[in-house]
Computed example of a mutant assay.
Amino acid sequence: MTITLRPGSTVMFTGDSITDCRRRESEDGLGSGYPLRIAGEWAHRHPDRPVTWLNTANAGDKVTDLQARWRTDVLDARPDVLSVLVGANDMGRHTLDPKGHVIPAERFEADYDRLLAPLVEAGTELILIEPFLLPIHGVVEAGAAVLIGEKEREQWRADLDPKIQAVRRLARRYGARLLAADGRFAELAASSAPEHWSADGVHPTPAGHAALAAAWLRLVA
């Protein structure tokens, strides 16, 4: 079942750098990634159904970072539809908390659950986007290229997969629309070079953002 965007609806995107895309430097506040593409394509298809588009994503955020700003950045805005993509920074070595402990999938799910519950109670429609990892040998961190080996990439994948399953469970629990981004990028990477969709395995290229936007728009009517 799809979400119906009515004239005057407010749609918010939130999450980490994949969604942020330097939104603060953009005139419309949407950044340069898939939220901008979605808003532009919607306006092109439906000039008679104007929608307010907001982006409150922050680069580097984990689920716990979202919790710290959830009231002011999300709940107080009262969006009709909220789209969330988070998890890339909860993966691999990023999962260490301040005490040096790995954040398990169970805690990731519980923290994520606490974000969603008040929105469901308020009647907000939810779109949950799976975090994803493409099979790239290099990643970019803090603006610098870092090569990772097969073993480390396998460890990242082993850590991410249970968190993807957590997002799927949350989508079922709250009747949210699920954008199966990890599976979609796996399909795309099987028929063309994964670098075409993401240069570092996490941040999409323009083609990757277009793929996310196209999949997102299939969830709304």
Rank of each mutant, 00 (worst) to 15 (best):
E121V: 12
I103P: 06
L115M: 09
G123Q: 02
W216A: 15
T14W: 01
E121L: 14
S32Y: 10
I129D: 03
L85S: 04
R22N: 14
G87W: 05
D161P: 02
G33T: 08
F132M: 13
L5M: 10
P206E: 09
V51F: 01
F185N: 00
H94F: 15
S32I: 11
P98V: 05
V220M: 07
R23D: 04
V220F: 11
G92I: 06
Y174T: 00
R22T: 05
A186W: 00
D28I: 13
G208K: 03
R177N: 01
V84I: 15
S191A: 10
W197K: 01
E125M: 04
D48K: 06
R23T: 02
L75G: 03
L75S: 10
N55C: 03
A43R: 11
A190N: 05
L126P: 05
P47T: 13
R169W: 00
V102E: 12
E106I: 07
L160W: 04
A144H: 12
M1S: 14
P47W: 13
L160D: 05
R45S: 08
L119M: 09
Y174A: 11
L178I: 00
Q155D: 10
K163Q: 10
R49M: 02
A193G: 03
D111C: 04
V140F: 09
A213Q: 04
Q155A: 11
R218H: 14
F132S: 12
P104S: 13
V51L: 01
T10P: 06
I103Q: 12
V11I: 11
I148A: 12
S192D: 13
A43L: 02
A59E: 01
M1C: 10
A57Q: 04
D200P: 03
A221I: 08
L134R: 09
P135I: 07
E121F: 13
G175E: 05
W197D: 00
A122Y: 03
A189Q: 09
E152C: 08
A181C: 13
E41D: 06
Q67D: 05
L115E: 05
P194T: 14
D48W: 07
D97K: 12
E195Q: 15
Y34V: 06
A144R: 15
R153N: 03
D90E: 09
D80C: 08
T205D: 00
S26H: 12
G143C: 08
R24D: 15
L134Q: 07
V51N: 04
G40W: 02
L160G: 05
D90G: 06
C21M: 07
R6M: 07
G60M: 12
T56S: 14
N55S: 03
D97L: 13
I3Q: 00
L133Y: 13
G175V: 03
L30P: 05
A180Y: 02
D182F: 02
D200R: 08
K163C: 02
A68P: 01
S17E: 07
P131K: 00
I103H: 14
D113S: 08
P162G: 01
S191N: 07
A105K: 03
H44F: 14
